[in-house]
Design a protein around this nucleic acid. Sequence first.
RNA 1: GAGCCUGUAGCUCAGUUGGCCAGAGCGCUUCGUUGACAUCGAAGAGGUCACCCGUUCAAGUCGGGUCAGGCUCACCA
Length: 888
Amino acid sequence: MENIFSKTWDAKGNEEKIYSTWEKAGYFRPEIKFSKQYTVNGKQYTEEDYSEDKNGKPFVIPIPPPNVTGKLHIGHAMFVTLEDIMTRYHRLLGEPTLWIPGTDHAGIATQSVVDRDLRKKGIKKNEIGREKFLEKVWEWKEKYGGKITRQIRRLGASCDWSRERFTLDDGLSSSVNEAFSLLYKKGLIYRGNYIVNWCPRCGSAISDDEVEHRAQKAKLYYFKYDKSFPITIASTRPETKLGDTAVAVNPKDERYKEFIGKEYRIELDGVKRTVKIIADRAVDKEFGTGALGVTPAHSPIDWKMAEENGLEVIKIIGEDGKMTAQAGEKYKGLSVKDAREKIISYLNNAGLMEKEEEIENNLAVCYRCETPIEPLPSLQWFVSMKPLAEKAKKAVESGDVKIIPKRFEKEYFHWMDNIRDWCISRQLWWGHRIPVWYKRDAKLKVESEKLKVDQKASGASEALEASEAGNVYVGENPPKGWTQDPDVLDTWFSSALWPFSTLGWPHFAEDKVGNPKSEYRNPKQIRNSNDQKLEANSWQLKADSDSLGFTPYDYQYFYPASVLETGYDILFFWVARMIMMGIELTGKPPFHTVYLHGLVRDEHNRKMSKSLGNVLDPLDIIDEYGTDALRMGLVVGATPGQDVAVGKSKIKGYRNFSNKIWNASRFVALRVSDGDLVSGEIGSSKIEDLDIDENILTDADREVLKVHKLTKSKVKEHLDKFQFSLAGEALYDYFWHTFADVYIEEAKEQLLGENPKYEARNPTRLAYARAKREQIINSNDQNGILNQVQDDDPKKLKSYLPEDATRQQSSSLGGLQAGNLHPVSDNTKKILLKILSETLIMLHPFVPFVTEAVWQELREIYPKLSESIMIAEWPLTTTSTTRIHRTD
RNA sequence: GAGCCUGUAGCUCAGUUGGCCAGAGCGCUUCGUUGACAUCGAAGAGGUCACCCGUUCAAGUCGGGUCAGGCUCACCA
């Protein structure tokens, strides 16, 4: 033991070994707890008692799946730490606990990374074609796919890797297809030609949520289409005016009242159009000339006006970012930028330009590549969101889903109230190909340049179904010879299914496997005795379950999840959509609680960025200070939804804390065994159950036991309320400043077996500790829980006060006789061991590695400790209540 | 334009439904320490809790307003 128990905690040399021991032992799989026998207050409890108590309810967290080819960053470290704390805590509480890991295929992100890589090698994706390119992406995935999960392991994540999922797995892909089909059949998915956000660089449509707005300086040009046109318009994008079919003015604008309803034939640099003057309240009289050139095809507002006024939609910019033939011979094929220059010089030369003005406006850009968005009409697939949003909103309103912190519920409602249909098709190759087949050929996506705005509102699918009847197949078994839609689904579509697709939905949903809930309510039955049972029942889906890696009842037992933990930045992208899809497809919200953490910033609260050079690489930190230190640094001081400042000095402080845990425990281990270890023995008595003799407690003993008890109740309360920072802080403070600074120092005296002293070695410090404890009790006690820690006889406590401290305190030693001093040091050893081991358990969710290392050392002295701290029992807060309910 | 959040010690932040003589870590000052730990200990300095008004026996905490910083959403061409 001595060689392992070195003077300082060697995180680097131990963490990976410890992790692989855990993983090999299978502690991350929820079934490990089911075979356990419980003994509480000397009574045996069967597994059935246990499951009744919990209503068979497991604790489940679906991981926010990182990009499969991604690299670990501090944001990952944040969510892994928080989720691991919850997972380990609930596991220690004895609940069947499942944290499902997995990765996301990350459509555009992965495709463009591989594309870039191939280009460097001189390979162009359009030349090698779809099949070959996808092979390359899969190769890339095989090569780099394991990296992120290995790195997540280094953070100590106790996920059940045997259930690891990838969004493009067979199982998940079939969930995606099934979800698409179901929604299509319900009329919640439709195809239509609508104006979408087109990213010319990604070469794909993107959803409204993927568009960001950047403030920019722009030029506003004032001009007329031609000399004969009566109204001057203002535009920042004169090149789009080639597609104008109307001019909109405010109905209250006196200047233009007389023109409303009239039509004009105009000719703009050779392009002839009919322009109607329409009235729309959205037009600001004060902006520009108060007259807006309406370009239905290339502006979302204009599109809406066109819908309302039955205007012609003329697409003058194509998906390639170049002007189409509709823009006229002079402009066809020009880039948007060139077209703008050309038309500006035309307007100037023709004497149509009246003035230019510098203004500030917002530019819509792609959130991935920052490329300016080109709005254009395109034939795409959409999810009709309003019906989904209504239910999703109710789930939060009713409290079925709780969002922490609460203020995000407001943002959530606002988003739901203002929701628009979700464009889910992407013109990419990497992803879930849309499960739709067409009878004729794949070129259904004709370049329609002259389109009437589809009258069909979202949700009304009859019209489309009629037109598609017999020509479109949606599902997994297409008729022979039909052609599949070339597009793939938005990555967030599969992410939205994550909490249930990872568990086997829809293959193992109730209607597919019957309802075995009553029989298989607790998976311990599956694990312990059911392999045979399943075979005996020759259960038909078993083969499927084996090939997909699910157990048949995962979905029914583990769904819905308990907590969904992630950063607030993807509340809408991911969380909101999961709630919508979960309710629609499974009939229940996919989780009960949403915990949103803040973003990690540098120590001066600046955003981490490469250009500032303040990026913290979690792997570097782990190498330098250890995982435990990183985890504490991330969690302490972080309140939900609030960004947290993390710098090296903070993490260094928690490295010191890890070392403190190590050394305090080292002290206990060495002193308790007196360096001369006989297993199970303490001095003259056996350790057994650490039955502390209450009659010979010293002042210090009493004090530390009280603070210990207080800490237990505080920590549990905080953890139950998702107050991880406060729990971590309370443990830190107690361990360092009471257990180590006060009690260990006092224990040094009490352990002098020959001639122990009973007076406090440092009465001032003890009094100080006591005062602090009382203050905590007084200020925190709401329900009277903490009062249980109050002293029975306040008078006795006077002896703690400094002025009385020199008094002989042997009275507090009860019946202890002068010649019988040894029991005190034995008792001290037991107290040290007891409170240390309990504290280690509470610390374990925060600092899993050092606590496990120390635990293993303590097992040498006290073999009754569980074989791993991971599967220990959370210390009971009170003696009167047991956490296992007996039915008799 | 709409909504939300933040403003507490030099720095980064805690402070749960109002009861604090206002806390932590880092930093700073002084002292100590060969025996678990210099990755340590003890003592200490440092705050009109942004500002103003109000509710209350009591306000960092609740209400109204002002100022400052930040975030989200949004069709100002």
